[in-house]
Simulated assay, not measured.
Amino acid sequence: MYKTASINYHKSKNILLVKNFYNLMKPRVMSLVVFTALVGLVISKNQIDFVSSVLALFFVAAGAGAAGALNMWYDSEIDAIMSRTCLRPIPLGKISNNQALYFGIFLTLVSVIGLYFVSNILSASILALTIGFYIFVYTIWLKRRSVQNIVIGGAAGAFPPVIGWTISNNSLSIEPIVLFLIIFFWTPSHFWSLSLYKSDDYKKADIPMLPVVSGVEFTKKNIFIYALILFPITILPFYFNFAGLIYLIPALILGLTYIFLTYQLLKAKNKINEEKYSKKIFAFSILYLFLIFSLLLIESFFKIF
C-alpha cells in the first residue's frame, strides 16, 4: 500500500515537473509560432513530404520554446513583480533559474541542429537568428532600455512564417517577406493595447513601455497609426497574387473593424473606456492575426485542390 502511494506520488511529481517545463516554453506563444510557420510552409510553391513537415514544425516549436525559456530565465526578477507574469514557473519556485537556462540552451541546440538535418541550413540559420534576436536584442538589450522595445523586438515574432517558407522552398521571395511585414506591423498595436491596461505593472517593473514613458494619449495615437499602416499591408497577399477574393474580402472587413476599434480607443475620454477598448483591441488583435493567416491557409488549400 505504502509502495503504491509512493509510486503515485513520484508519478504526480514528475508530471508536475514536466508541466512546469512545458509552461516555461510559453505554450500560447509557441502555438502561434507553429501556426504561422505552418502557413508559410503550406503556401510555398514546393511542398515537402508529411513526415519532414511535421518534424520541421516540431523543431520550430522547440525553438520557440527555447526562446520562451531563456526569456523567463533572464526576466525572472521582473516577472515576479508583475501581476501578469508572477504565476510563471520561476517566480513560483517550481523551476530554478539555472534549470531554465540549461533547458533553454538545450532546446536551442536541439531545435537548430534538428531543423538543419530535416530541412536545410537556411531554415536552421533563420531559426537561430530568431532565438538570438528575441533573447539578445529584445529581452537583454531593448526591453528594459528602449520605448521601441516592442517595435524592434517584434521582428522576432515575425520570422516564423519565413522559416516555414524556407523549410519547403530553401529560398526567400516576396511571399514570406509580406507575411513577415504583416506580423511585424501587427505587433506594436497588439502589445501597446495590453500595456495600456497593464501600465501599473510595467511601472513597477521599470519597463519603458510606451504608456509609461510617453503617456496614454500618445500611445492611443500610435495604436491607431499602426492599425492604419497594417491595413494596406494585409492587402499585399492579394496584390502579389498569392491570395484571391476568398482572402481579400474578409481581410478588408477585419482590417476596417480593427481600425474602428483603435479609433474608438483614440476618442475615449476616460480611464474606464480606455481600459475597455484597449482590452477589446488586445483580444481582437489575436483573432485578427489568426484569421488573416487562416484565410491564407484556406486559399492555399483551394489552389491545391
Score class of each variant (00 low, 15 high):
2 Y>E: 13
7 I>W: 03
11 K>A: 08
12 S>M: 12
23 N>S: 11
41 L>I: 05
45 K>C: 00
49 D>K: 11
50 F>L: 12
50 F>W: 12
53 S>E: 14
59 F>I: 01
60 V>S: 09
60 V>Y: 06
72 M>Q: 12
73 W>C: 08
78 I>E: 04
83 S>M: 12
83 S>N: 14
88 R>H: 09
91 P>T: 04
92 L>A: 13
96 S>Y: 01
103 F>M: 08
104 G>A: 15
106 F>Q: 00
110 V>T: 10
115 L>K: 09
118 V>E: 06
120 N>Q: 04
120 N>M: 01
121 I>F: 15
123 S>I: 00
124 A>C: 03
139 T>F: 10
143 K>D: 04
148 Q>A: 12
149 N>M: 09
149 N>S: 11
150 I>Q: 13
150 I>N: 11
151 V>Y: 15
152 I>A: 12
161 P>Q: 09
167 I>Y: 09
176 P>N: 07
185 F>I: 10
188 P>M: 06
203 K>T: 00
205 A>Y: 06
206 D>N: 14
207 I>L: 11
213 V>T: 13
214 S>M: 05
218 F>L: 04
225 I>C: 09
227 A>Y: 06
228 L>F: 10
230 L>T: 12
246 I>V: 13
248 L>V: 04
253 I>C: 05
256 L>T: 02
258 Y>N: 10
261 L>T: 02
276 K>T: 01
276 K>N: 05
277 Y>Q: 05
278 S>A: 04
287 L>F: 14
288 Y>D: 11
291 L>I: 15
296 L>N: 02
299 E>F: 03
301 F>D: 01
